[in-house]
Amino acid sequence: MKKIAWLLPLCLLLAACRADVSEPEELYLVSAIGFDAGNADLRVSVEVPLTRENEADKMEVLVFDGTGNNLTAAMRDLRAKLGKKLFFGHCALAIFGDGVSGDALRAALDFLSGNEIPLSVTVVSAPDARELLARGTLSAPAAGYEIPDILRLLARDEGLPLRCRYYEIAAHSSDFTLPRFLPSDLNNAVPDRFVGMRSYRDGKAAVE
């Protein structure tokens, strides 16, 4: 009986006093991540849907970005701007901008292979990843969920053989094909547009 008497408070203490427990409101849930490469730097953009207190039925989407010489520096720059920890466990979309190739492409693919990001993340290409994320969506709360839905419908209705989940392309890390999207036109109520496929050979992009 004495053992139980001190065991319960001990468990409670151990359970409660944990510095690494993250409550969901302490996290930024990343729905999509984009990579853009310029002349000398790399830009990482993340799309974060938020539900505000007292407005659980409304969802706001924020886009944050960070730049740096390489992916590590860009991520560090991004995290420094944020008050909460980024959580990639529900990331559904990764976008490669047109400039991403060679070392930047390899670094991005390595980043996506980390344990936190699901292997089933959909990978697409776009002229500008940040613009695709920032433009907003018409049919879904966030681009990270809208674009995979569009691809699923295309595969089902038009029979397009889309193999663009990360694990489907990672085995062919130097030769693969990605769907290409242009940003939505909210003024004319046009969602993000699928405009064809973009091939990558030997780590470099070619437009088809």
Partner: peptide
């Protein structure tokens, strides 16, 4: 374990 993580009950439901 990684193969099973790819399995999803719908896009938004749990794995």
């Amino acid at each position: 374990s990684r193969a099973v993580r790819v399995v999803s009950v719908g896009q938004y439901a749990f794995r």
